[in-house]
Write a protein that binds this DNA or RNA. Structure first.
Lengths: 242, 242
DNA sequence: GAACTGCATTAATCTAGGACATAGGGGTGG
DNA sequence: CCACCCCTATGTCCTAGATTAATGCAGTTC
């Protein structure tokens, strides 16, 4: 039942850079197993030093930081193809936690393999750096939104971004995507209160722009929504899949 | 007048990981020159693809993103030892701009060297990834502050962080550090208005905690300030210097 | 099917922080 | 010496969004 990398459904997608058969065989050697987990499972804990890295095969989750006073900042929403645990893999300690918000399948890599990868497979090492730089890029984007945008702009931005990610991963079915999060998660991602997030979502619904109900997001007019978000759509860049 | 790496004053500091003489000689081969620039100079422009990377030898600056409507998010304050331009070096495009806010000296590396570095010097490649992961880590931290903290907590956090960075770089002189930024820069970093930032700084002054005037920051009680910031002090982690 | 629990929704009230306006202190340059 | 500009400093007013609280609705548990 474990997917072998050569049949990995994700690799078919255009968003992921093409790998040669030989490269895929190599990745397979690094894969030590597959992990299936339920919604609600914590995958990695902030401050911990996990012996494993994961690539998401299926399902969604989120990255977050807990503050001493109980507040929570959601950094990111996790989608298929994302690499999880790189911080611990490289620096020896996670700066955030990762949690599944739907059933998920994860491809498991052994952390010990990272160094041998740097030594012997510079292309893959480069990909790792690429992914780290890319995360940095998007966190910067997020910071700019949280720091400078109004509530409605921020929510619109988040929905557009989620929708585009889903699109690039073939997760859209006639304008609908699965969005297995709670409003509280979005609120914590944008630094808004739950109530205000709720009101803002209702407003977007009234404006006939986006409708998020029962774990499904439907976007009526992505152009208008993106315009409202001000932030320019920056289509999905092709990225490596490890 | 160009510093050769074996005499690099930064390398003496404890915050930077020790390099062997051989490793230092190697870095030297990558160094293509030194750049001296004035305050106000833009070093890298968002969206550009610079042919060069830089390591800061001296001086301070900031990283920022401009939004379409003219607002600005400051992502980061740049200190000696920081590597600039990695995003462009790896992904081919900067996600933010970098500007000098004081006179600066930069160590210049050729971007073309990156790939040969991955191929032949895996330890350095690992360091690059480490740095990228570290940037990601701190951006996450910043996001949590901007998203969740009150104005006074955020300002206190920023001052503590700046102070600790300066401390680890030997930039403190009896409790004072150079802080060549404008209040507007801090405001843009924390998502606050200039006026409110100003008032908050005044409040910290009244509380006898910190005093930032004429480009100098003095902190009276870093413990209390850190406590006010809630966020725990996470001393400076030893990092690679490229 | 009663008693809980978790989440979305709505309403009412309050406040942190934004917008705007003004004044003063250095620089700098003509 | 004055005019101009940029920055810090403060005061006043006002709104976006926080806080609190109440309601309703599935699911779950027993």
């Amino acid at each position: 039942m474990a997917v072998d990398c050569s049949n990995c459904p994700l690799r078919e997608l255009d968003v992921f850079m093409a790998f040669s058969a030989e490269e895929i065989r190599f990745m397979e050697r690094f894969k030590v197993g597959e992990l299936n987990i339920d919604a609600g499972t914590t995958i990695l804990l902030e401050g911990s030093n996990s012996p494993q890295l994961f690539t998401v095969l299926k399902g969604q989750g989120l990255r977050y930081k807990l503050l001493e006073d109980g507040r929570r900042q959601v950094l990111n929403f996790v989608f298929p193809g994302d690499l999880i645990g790189l911080q611990a893999g490289i620096m020896g300690e996670m700066g955030h936690s990762v949690e599944a918000t739907s059933q998920m399948s994860l491809c498991v890599f052994d952390r010990g393999g990272i160094w041998s990868l740097f030594k012997s497979y510079p292309e893959r090492a480069y990909d790792l750096t690429w992914l780290a730089a890319s995360e940095e890029h998007f966190l910067g984007e997020t910071l700019a939104v949280v720091g400078q945008r109004t509530a409605i702009q921020a929510v619109a931005w988040a929905l557009v971004r989620l929708y585009e990610r889903a699109g690039s991963l073939g997760m859209l079915k006639n304008g609908n995507m699965p969005l297995p999060y709670r409003q509280q998660d979005l609120a914590d991602a944008l630094g808004l209160s739950l109530v205000h997030t709720n009101k803002t979502l209702a407003r977007l619904r009234d404006l006939q722009l986006a409708n998020w109900t029962e774990g499904e997001l439907h976007i009526n007019d992505i152009e208008k929504l993106a315009e409202l978000a001000v932030s320019a759509r920056e289509g999905e860049r092709r990225r490596p899949l490890l």
